[in-house]
Amino acid sequence: MGLLNQRFENGNVLLTSVDDVLAWGRLSSLWAMQFGLACCAIEMMATGASHYDLDRFGTFFRSSPRQADVMIVAGTVTLKMASRIKTLYDQMAEPRYVLSMGSCANCGGPYWEHGYHVLKGVDRVIPVDVYVPGCPPRPEALMEGLLKLKEKIRKERLILKQTA
């Protein structure tokens, strides 16, 4: 509410659409699933910790997929892990989003050629909304990815059906 602080006197009225309010509410508190796979998870931890402080964007980590809005796939997805990721994604309540962090989750990264046990991109098992490149991406890049996701949510219409 920082933007609206002390802008109005004695309780004014805001006129907006239900969709906008819903989208604003959802994008302002994106809870991410605490789910680290590999190197990128360390950068994800650093993003959530003291120096970068992801909490100020309304994002903090929940341990259960059922309480999370966004799944940050941070790291290399192996074939053994892929079915578990699918399960976790299925356990999340809708609307749900997936942010693929790092080259491995995007396309296999350095393991694209000889990685017989690496899934070449998490988008082969679950749909991805935002891709963040880098190996690993800096915390700033992860934040940028989350901001992009917020832009996407802002444009979403849940109640009003979009006219083709």
């Binding site: 074939l79 892929a82 396309c107 296999g108 694209w112 017989y116 046990h117 899934l119 070449k120 098992v125």
Partner: peptide
């Protein structure tokens, strides 16, 4: 056994495509 010299990477595993 993947690290044998003559190992061929399978095309699919559990419905997931393995090669790039």
């Amino acid at each position: 056994h993947p690290l044998r010299k003559d190992y061929q990477v399978p095309e699919f595993y559990n419905g997931m495509k393995v090669p790039y």
